[in-house]
Design a protein around this nucleic acid. Structure first.
Lengths: 381, 381
DNA sequence: CAAATCGCTG
DNA sequence: CAGCGATTTG
């Protein structure tokens, strides 16, 4: 059985608001590590991946893995009955066909209880490649929202181009053409677009421990493996959290691994630092590495050591751009606008890109993350 | 070519917001003195006239007069892509078919550039009579907004009546009738409704020169016709501007003169000071009067001398009422509500009225003005 | 100046 | 029911 208690129902409400227009039905996969959800959007163009770490809950218990088939429209309605600051407990018996939600006002003078019907949903558990990317842009989520919103007024699609000049978002429309150029915020010493030749960037996981650890390892010379070391600067996430670790990663990795991506992970060599990260996982066995990650500090450390200067600086406000190669991709603005609704969950967003592969838009909040994958338009420039 | 830089894109945004629902396409007429726009509303019931003085720009250059045919809906979209405090530069080559807009964040780490298509628009350059009015009401723009909004909830039209009692806005509706009476704010010496028998008021021009001149003629005794003379007090505008002159004025005046309103002007007697102003103009001999107007200075002078005392006082907060004759006119509230959107541009609004002639609603802001003309409903009371 | 909420229109 | 716009609050 599952029993999970969230301190703030608002977290769940925002999460549902962020994806309910993209997906109507989906399985919430629950296991001891937390809850994940993966689904293609209704038109099968985009993929959304959500993670809620067990550690992010005030209380979490899940005896055995179980999928909860939920109609997101129904869940949205039920969640609207909760106040943002209510404590929210969700429960499901092992073979239950209903999900029980209890909302308790912090003052505890009000308790509301709802039972929502569950449904059987074919779980098209898609494997998500653990791709490495040629460019990563980290910026305030509100700025991303603003840009895609602005450009969506003009045209249907946007060309995102990362070069040493910065990152450019350009859209052509009937009435007007528009282009927004963001330069790396020059905060600290490393104030410019990082351009490392061959290293590959992996997505920064704030929440994901693995990644973090890895980074930390990488960054630090004293990495356990002892491999670390190029000291390339990769950016780890400076996501909002910093401390929370995710368990899911394993899953993701597994999947990605399945994809054969794991190898790549190892390939981190390109990014020496990352390799460290991967190792951990592998080493996880080890787990120590994870700890490191877990220690939110890891992120920061990484930053501090590597690019952190800039990170910290850009940290909460600026734009950070990292690239190994020039990338230029075109995407549907409609989807990006949709993705950008997640800005309410997190103040920063990461865009991970490589030519001809799907864009990854990642919002990492304290208790997990929400990630969107969107294939580029072909014939894009 | 045109190149003009505004310190705050917000100014342009507000201006477009104020007129975009009234007009869909219009020519921005650019010349060395600034930018003007004149257009009838889509249903040809109201006329809107906008002025942006060259001196109000951070940088302004226009080698030769050029009309920029703009679809206001498109321009609104493009302007939405600017933040209110961005610096905004608009550029157009001499025979260009696109208008280039560049927005620069004050922090300068973001530069957005847009190219908007221009179109050829039949310039129905309407002559705007440089009418003299029997009553002028100057009040906080927010108050005007509130009044027409309130009354629009009750009925379709409003009767505006200026008498020695003050100015009354009254509307009759199915469910209720409403009436709002504003009395002159008793600020300075001239704290009450000015009631001059026959003198006519011209709109206070901050920017329009022409208008000013015309009035002058009437007021002064030495009017060419020899008719003038009553020495009526007319109010010039205390608008924000003061220096920039418009070329258009010529046109405007011509028409107003045609109206035969001049005679009334002469009645200024009540406010001796004003007469002085008028004289200048008139002295110019007959037509000279027009010239005088052109000199924007005329405006300010007029004010200072005549009723200015009161103007200054009520100046920023109160209601100022000036009248030469009792006026009572009925207007469509729908339009007035629309006009009142300009309140975001300026804290004061002027209403200029004479029986049976179009109402002039004028918002004068630092860098120009926006004026609306609306014909009264016939059969009005 | 920006964000969130409510209302209105499609 | 969803999206867009307007208004209000922070």
């Amino acid at each position: 059985m599952l029993e999970a208690k969230l301190s703030e129902a608002g977290t769940l409400k925002k999460l549902l608001d962020a994806i309910k227009e993209l997906v109507t039905d989906a399985n919430f996969e629950c296991n001891e590590e937390g809850i994940t959800l993966q689904a293609m959007d209704n038109s099968h163009v985009a993929l959304v991946s959500v993670l809620l770490e067990a550690t992010g809950f005030k209380r979490y218990r899940c005896d055995r893995p179980m999928p909860l088939g939920v109609n997101l429209t129904s869940l949205t309605k039920v969640l609207k009955c909760a106040k943002d600051d209510d404590e929210c407990t969700i429960k499901a018996a092992d073979e239950a066909d209903v999900l029980n939600l209890v909302y308790e006002a912090k003052s505890s003078d009000r308790i509301a209880e709802y039972d929502m019907k569950l449904m059987d949903i074919d779980s098209d558990t898609l494997g998500i490649p653990d791709t490495e990317y040629d460019a990563r842009v980290t910026m305030p989520s509100a700025e991303f929202t603003r840009i895609v919103r602005d450009l969506s007024l003009l045209g249907e699609s946007v060309r995102i181009e990362v070069s040493k000049e910065g990152v450019r978002f350009a859209s052509d429309g009937e009435a007007a053409n528009g282009s927004v150029l963001l330069r790396q915020s020059d905060s600290s010493s490393i104030g410019k677009v990082t351009q490392s030749k061959s290293k590959t960037l992996k997505k920064e996981d704030g929440a994901d421990d693995e990644v973090v650890d890895v980074d930390a390892d990488d960054d630090e010379e004293e990495a356990p493996d002892g491999k670390k070391i190029k000291k390339e600067k990769k950016v780890k996430k400076e996501g909002a959290d910093g401390d929370v670790d995710m368990d899911d990663d394993e899953e993701f990795k597994a999947r990605s691994d399945d994809e054969g991506e794991d190898e790549q992970d190892e390939n981190e060599d390109e990014e020496g630092s990352e390799s460290g990260k991967k190792r951990k996982k592998s080493s996880s066995s080890s787990k120590p590495s994870k700890k490191a990650k877990t220690a939110s500090s890891s992120k920061r450390k990484g930053k501090g050591k590597k690019t952190d200067d800039s990170d910290d600086e850009d940290g909460e406000a600026g734009v950070r751009i990292e690239m190994n190669a020039h990338v230029s991709l075109t995407f549907s603005l409609k989807y990006l606008v949709n993705f950008s609704k997640s800005a309410s969950l997190c103040s920063r967003v990461q865009l991970m890109m490589s030519n001809d592969v799907p864009l990854l838009v990642s919002y990492d909040f304290g208790q997990g993350h929400i990630r969107y994958y969107l294939a580029p338009k072909i014939g894009d420039d």
